[in-house]
Write a protein that binds this DNA or RNA. Sequence first.
DNA 1: AAGAAATGAATGAACGTTCACTCCCGTAGC
DNA 2: GCTACGGGAGTGAACGTTCATTCATTTCTT
Lengths: 208, 208
Amino acid sequence: MTSPASAQDIRAEQRIFDILASVRVAFAEKGFDGASMQDLARAAGISVGNFYRYFPSKSAIIDQLIAHDLAEMDRHFAEIMTSPFPLLALKQQVSAQIQLHQNCADGQIWAEITASALRKPEIARAADLMEASITANLMQVFARETGLPLAEITRRFQSHASYIVLLVKAASMQAPRAPEARDALNALILQTIDQMLAEVARASLKVL
Amino acid sequence: MTSPASAQDIRAEQRIFDILASVRVAFAEKGFDGASMQDLARAAGISVGNFYRYFPSKSAIIDQLIAHDLAEMDRHFAEIMTSPFPLLALKQQVSAQIQLHQNCADGQIWAEITASALRKPEIARAADLMEASITANLMQVFARETGLPLAEITRRFQSHASYIVLLVKAASMQAPRAPEARDALNALILQTIDQMLAEVARASLKVL
DNA sequence: AAGAAATGAATGAACGTTCACTCCCGTAGC
DNA sequence: GCTACGGGAGTGAACGTTCATTCATTTCTT
């Protein structure tokens, strides 16, 4: 942070934070293309014109929304890393995320990001950055848990990390279904994730 | 089929088939909302106005596109069921699909369907129908392989089928990445699918 | 009063859809 | 053999609407 961050700036930042939270719902309901500026304005409770005081364009809103999600994800990982058993904390976090994402709008946003990342280079860049950040964080957790050097962890378990990301994303993007069917499916997904993490944990035992 | 299906009707059907194939690319490139009728017309090589001689509206095009995909999927399953070892044939089919979908536009279309199914009820209905059809087909394959009654198969392995569908979808929706990373990830996904199918196969051994 | 915050009507472009029209080809009348 | 004609195939300009964006204006805050 290079700026002095006056109280005014902080208030503006908080405002942007709030607006993004409101806007997220509108985007989830209608999609990035489908939601008009009117929709976003209505959702955020401000006028259309006022939007352009906070964001230079509609696509900038989307960019910041994704960046905001990335920051939050980093915060989660920071929490995980402070835990005495990071792998366990990770498991709990993941399990909670899968349950949670299906209830709030996050799954729809992820689906939207995934779809538009495949055709809009700018969003693809943001999505790649997010995946890279998450897998890098996972590498940190793995390294911490196993005591192995980061380079070796990366070489051996990068794909495991990518797979976990894929599974969490896919789980959150699920269409709503009957509770028992959803629970059974979630269980299978979590089982696979556990397997991946178990493979990582096993790598550390060999060292011990 | 109740209609006599004159030669003219057949030609029109073929025309629609061709148009859908062209339109699929345009939708993949710009998304369902992002692709304008002008874009679709250009992709199909016909005028905008002429489109409305074949489809009553833009959303009808999307509906028929999905219906067309479902029909093709059913054809694949019919092929699998004629094999002497359906489970093996299924494995090969799935493996091929995962490799293939990432190369052609199918992954982007799936992502688009997934995203818009979460917010447009009509598309959600079509997507549900597709998932139901695929899992039903998988149940048939499982029943054929294990010799167990369909009801028991469904009770025990419905979630396995849903999980396989989820994995194949997620695999095809992957953002492009380095070949070795992609292959490693695909291997993990296929490993999980193999596990699911192995669980099904094990059910039949208990009977023998 | 001064400046920041917020408004919503105005703007031109682009949207999905329609429609009056041309083109083409097989056939009937002469 | 030539012409007139019916109708399906195809066109692209025009329609009303909605879009993202701008800006002159008003409302808050201090």
